[in-house]
């Protein structure tokens, strides 16, 4: 790895597959050997597309897999729209991994509750891989996943496998046209008493801020301690190493202090308007 944190390493697209109409997963291999750096669940990379620009994207693959680097990306802006046209064999620049990670070690021996909204399932998938590989280290494990519609649901081919090891529940905001037989409604409706012991649970929440806000409210109502709730925050990130200043969130830099925060540490800033 180059020592200059601003200089990307070149990776080649090995696999490119659409998960939904606007979301795709890339598997990348390093152009030079030994470049795949170990990462922790919840960390992100800066992904550079030649001539277009750079965006921060969470790693959505398995930490134990060293042969490829996996990212799930939603095409929403200039760079990600261009990335959605990538083909096998094409090149990308990668620098990272950066940032804090989900508390997978502090969670051992406890119940686990993962709450994901939309593309928020991607940064939590490395946690799911880790839990399944180390299933005996954790108590009851529940994943609650909400998406806008059944067209937006990610990783459906893996659900069956996941359901063998953990309690996996899905809901969609609207499922009116008969193509969905599951839960309908917001993800907070899936939070139930029997899935976890409020005083012995580690909760990891990732999704739009408003969804995280209502999830936390529900968790606190059920007496989960703030110290046991973790969230992944998003702000404008350009350098990823704490120099550019764009990702400031109160006294925190989302790039180096986050993106994963213990809710107790940011509760004063959370949902504060225009902070």
């Amino acid at each position: 790895m180059r020592s200059d944190p601003m200089c990307p390493n070149i990776y080649t697209v090995e696999k490119m597959a659409y998960d939904t109409h606007d979301t795709f997963t890339l598997e990348l291999v390093a152009q030079q050997e030994n470049q795949i750096v170990s990462f922790m669940p919840g960390q992100f990379n800066m992904m550079y597309l030649f001539g277009v620009g750079e965006v921060p994207i969470s790693i959505s693959g398995d930490c134990e897999r060293r042969d490829a680097l996996t990212h799930t990306i939603r095409a929403v802006g200039t760079v990600t729209n261009e990335m959605s046209k990538l083909q096998v064999g094409q090149h990308l620049g990668i620098r990272g991994p950066y940032g804090s990670y989900w508390p997978i070690h502090d969670a051992t021996g406890k119940d686990i509750l993962l709450i994901a909204g939309g593309i928020g399932l991607a940064p939590l998938r490395p946690v799911i891989y880790h839990i399944i590989a180390n299933r005996s280290s954790y108590n009851n494990v529940t994943v609650l996943y909400g998406a806008r519609s059944c067209k937006d649901l990610l990783y459906q081919q893996q659900w069956e496998e996941w359901q063998q090891s953990l309690n996996f529940k899905v809901t969609v905001d609207s499922g009116s046209n008969g193509d969905w037989n599951g839960h309908v409604g917001v993800v907070t409706n899936l939070i139930t008493r029997k899935d976890f012991a409020p005083h012995n649970v580690m909760v990891m929440v990732c999704g739009p801020e408003i969804m995280m806000h209502f999830s936390i409210r529900e968790l606190l109502r059920r007496e989960v301690k703030m110290d046991d709730i973790y969230v992944s925050m998003e702000r404008n990130m350009q350098c990823a190493v704490g120099y550019c200043g764009h990702c400031q969130y109160g006294a925190k830099f989302v790039c180096k202090d986050g993106p994963v925060f213990c809710y107790a540490d940011i509760q004063d800033s959370f949902r504060k308007r225009e902070l």
Binding site: Y48, G51, V52, Q238
Partner: peptide
């Protein structure tokens, strides 16, 4: 100290 990181072609 804040900076913008810009990619230009």
């Amino acid at each position: 100290f804040c900076t913008a990181v810009e990619d230009v072609t």
